[in-house]
């Protein structure tokens, strides 16, 4: 097994684990983490593809990974903010009912 195919299998594996997590995980934080695992899988595939045996690595793919990371951070931040707000609101309504 070459190094390349090892990376590809690993990245597809990460994507699959993440996908399973998003669908099956009960807690919202786990779902958000699972989305991040999925994106790590995709980034790994992109970085692996950038490898060029005879010359310098492909910069386009590196730029794509950087953009992807920025997008993933923005998405995660928004998801965490929304989850935190929902949590705070549900705690407040619990206190009201007591």
């Amino acid at each position: 097994m070459t190094q390349d195919s090892l990376y590809i299998i690993a990245s597809v594996g990460l994507f699959g684990i993440g996908l399973y997590g998003v669908i099956a995980a009960p807690h919202i934080l786990r779902k958000i983490l699972a989305i991040n695992i999925m994106s790590v899988g995709v980034f790994m595939l992109l970085v692996t593809s950038a490898k060029n045996v005879n010359s310098t690595p492909d910069p386009v793919l590196h730029a794509m990974v950087l953009t992807g990371i920025v997008v993933a951070i923005a998405g995660t931040a928004l998801a965490l903010f929304l989850a935190g707000k929902i949590h705070a609101l549900s705690e407040a309504s619990d206190e009201d009912s007591h």
């Binding site: 993440g18 989305i35 929304l82 989850a83």
Partner: peptide, 28 residues
């Protein structure tokens, strides 16, 4: 509204990641 938004966000991120994986495959 917040719950609907969070669910919308997760679905959206899931969809874009599937799309991004396809972009990676096509570029490869």
């Amino acid at each position: 509204a917040l719950t609907a938004a969070l669910r919308y966000l997760l679905v959206g991120l899931l969809g874009s990641l599937c799309y991004l994986l396809a972009v990676a495959l096509l570029y490869r």
